[in-house]
């Protein structure tokens, strides 16, 4: 790394969670292990732990989202934090306030963490750089760049079903070009030691130098999913497409849509994932989305535990020297 990683404290603990890039296997595993401990909280009488009591977490969403914003909100509430939801489309930014002014105003309300989604790549990094030093920032998706909590909840889902990443073949199918999810997934899968990561897409939906990310490229779905353990379908991001990238959605489904019949090419115990929202009949057939190999709804549940882990680790990175020994007895 050329510049110090602003995501980490001097002791190497998580301060911001902006991208998988620059993190190591130990830290990713720590996130997964901590999330594992949080899964039990959802099954109790009181679905809350007092870890972040008195902290204020601000959901700063410059781009629409239902699932991600809701699961971040549930995660924050399960940690006993107070949550501010700012819908920027209808707020001051629309009246001309700059991002930095919005930020300063929220800081004046004593916010401890920002969860940021923005259509521009690098927005979360910008906020982390300019926010007051006690504030942590979690990236909930920035442009085409990164969506690290989504990648980690996918890793969590894969680990739950397959145990270890070594020996696994994972295929990511669809709109890689516009997908911040795919970028974060590829980085995380490779860091965690996945044997083979494949991307399957038409040439128009692949970034120019995709092989440099450490993936095998396929243009044929059946060939690409042969003998894989995990299939991750991506949403066609029609709202980000400029120009003629696809003849039609119908034709896309004919070539790249996952059907029960095509799924036979993968391993019999392969799991099917999708970050949502699904375009039924475009990326996959409803029979597959609702079928026994689909773990799509589990991804949503696990997303809460993973976001609880990331939030508490970032908020607990501490201003002090980080002595762990001793403590409560």
């Amino acid at each position: 790394m050329s510049s110090p990683n602003i995501q980490l404290t001097d002791e190497g603990r998580l301060k911001h969670f902006l991208t998988i890039d620059g993190l190591n296997k130990t830290l990713l595993t720590e996130i997964l292990d901590t999330a594992e401990s949080f899964t039990g909280v959802s099954e109790r009488t009181v679905k809350k732990v007092p870890l972040l009591r008195g902290k204020v977490i601000c959901n700063l969403f410059f781009e629409n989202s239902t699932r991600t914003r809701t699961t971040f909100e549930v995660a924050a509430k399960r940690l006993s934090a107070d949550v501010l939801n700012l819908n920027i489309n209808t707020s001051a930014t629309a009246k001309g306030e700059t991002l930095l002014d919005t930020l300063r105003n929220l800081e004046a309300m004593h916010v401890d963490m920002f969860v940021v989604r923005h259509a521009d790549s690098g927005a979360a990094h910008f906020i982390a750089t300019h926010a007051a030093p006690h504030i942590s920032v979690v990236n909930a998706g920035d442009g085409r760049h990164a969506h690290p909590t989504q990648a980690m909840l996918d890793m969590f889902t894969i680990r739950r079903h397959k145990g270890d990443f070594t020996g696994l073949r994972v295929a990511i199918v669809g709109d890689i070009l516009h997908s911040r999810v795919a970028r974060s997934q590829i980085l995380a899968l490779n860091l965690l030691g996945t044997s083979e990561v494949r991307v399957i897409a038409p040439r128009t939906l692949l970034p120019a130098h995709v092989r440099t990310l450490g993936v095998h490229v396929y243009h044929d779905l059946m060939e690409g999913i042969k003998d894989v353990d995990v299939i991750i379908m991506l949403r066609l991001q029609r709202e980000r497409m400029r120009g003629a990238m696809l003849p039609s959605e119908h034709e896309y489904f004919q070539l790249y849509g996952l059907t029960q019949e095509r799924l036979q090419a993968a391993k019999p115990d392969a799991i099917v994932m999708h970050p949502g929202p699904i375009n039924r009949g475009v990326e996959m057939d409803s029979v597959v989305a609702d079928g026994p190999q689909s773990v799509i709804l589990q991804q949503v549940s696990f997303g809460i535990a993973v976001r609880m882990a990331v939030m508490s680790m970032a908020m607990g990175s501490g201003q002090s020297s980080g002595q762990i020994q001793g403590g409560a007895r």
Partner: peptide, 21 residues
């Protein structure tokens, strides 16, 4: 595992070896 209930969490942070209760 009382890690999620500690009163010194904000000072010492998350126990990296937290186990499920």
């Amino acid at each position: 595992d009382i890690s999620f209930y500690r009163d010194d969490f904000t000072r010492i942070g998350m126990n990296p070896e937290v186990k499920p209760s």
